[in-house]
Design a protein around this nucleic acid. Sequence first.
DNA 1: AAGTTTTACCTAAAGGTGTTAGGTTGGCTG
DNA 2: CAGCCAACCTAACACCTTTAGGTAAAACTT
Lengths: 191, 191
Amino acid sequence: MARARLTPKSIITAAADLADLSGFDAISLSAVARQLGVQTASLYSHVRDRAAVLDGVHELALDELAEQIATAVAGRAGHEALVGLADAQRAYARRWPGRWEALQRPAASSTVQSEAAARVVTLTFAVLRGYALPDDELVHVTRMLGASVNGFITLERAGNFAHREPDTEASWQRILTALDALFRAWPTPSE
Amino acid sequence: MARARLTPKSIITAAADLADLSGFDAISLSAVARQLGVQTASLYSHVRDRAAVLDGVHELALDELAEQIATAVAGRAGHEALVGLADAQRAYARRWPGRWEALQRPAASSTVQSEAAARVVTLTFAVLRGYALPDDELVHVTRMLGASVNGFITLERAGNFAHREPDTEASWQRILTALDALFRAWPTPSE
DNA sequence: AAGTTTTACCTAAAGGTGTTAGGTTGGCTG
DNA sequence: CAGCCAACCTAACACCTTTAGGTAAAACTT
């Protein structure tokens, strides 16, 4: 019989596709195996267990997101770069909802130390370098940017903003403008 | 045999406690039934299915959170009220991690229309009334505040801020200060 | 090209979970 | 005290994860 040529990557990709289709919680090894035309138990030669697959999806998503952000901020600076970074994340969350869900869970330590994670941090730093911020404040600002963008997308997806005027789009624009203004006039501790 | 006097509420509370102990995903009707000294199938006389229990935990958490926020902002205004609101959420997330996780999932429509949800919105508006904002901007500002606070807590809990100086606490303080400054000088569309 | 080894995939099985169907019994109502 | 109705039970099914051990395809050796 022809073999399926399974690899950790093919399994994780199938799981991620499944997540985008039916939600992250719908990732089951049975469903993944079914999609790959293989018995469930066969997956265990390539991945440790279900948790490892979920972590794999997380890292895959982080890698893809880093790529998207990289192209979105390339050749841009200041407000443009900020909007590029933020829009890239929001667009990713919309196009790949299951993968985005994966990014919301606590990361495995291997993921935290991954090249993709470092890349996102570097890219964010690069965007913020356009704003003349003291080095001590850079981390705080990075965290605020991450929190705002991530939080907005989460609340939007959770339906917290739905059924209320004005529409979400206007808020998104306004918030990015506000962040830009804030970073230009970042309040350093009056010491 | 003595009966357990099950109610939807007792089931949901047991599920919430389980979530705080072992994580939201660990909520299983089997475990809930075990904790209540009852057979799993017995729960079905009081709740429709597992999804209904998860939604119940969400609404329970929202209710408790509204209560916490209410006492945190009572008698405060401006920066103090802002910090109270934000700290209340962060403290809730720390003390009740499973319930907090429940709040991160898409809300059932009944939850969206619940009294607790309205209460949180009202309280947030009240806090922001201290900042002289145009009515049109109030919703945008509310969304930004929610996104920032929520996003920060999520990223903190996911470990995105760990293993990096300076510590999370300093960032939290600085971000709240920045939000306060931002709301005082909110950039309205220059029209 | 044939024999041997490796390994990718399989079948089998145990144990847990969600859910439905239908039986039994505790405790209120008359 | 009789009867009823809910509350809880047992039984059963389908599905999921994970481990153990078998089989055959592929890769390596000579």
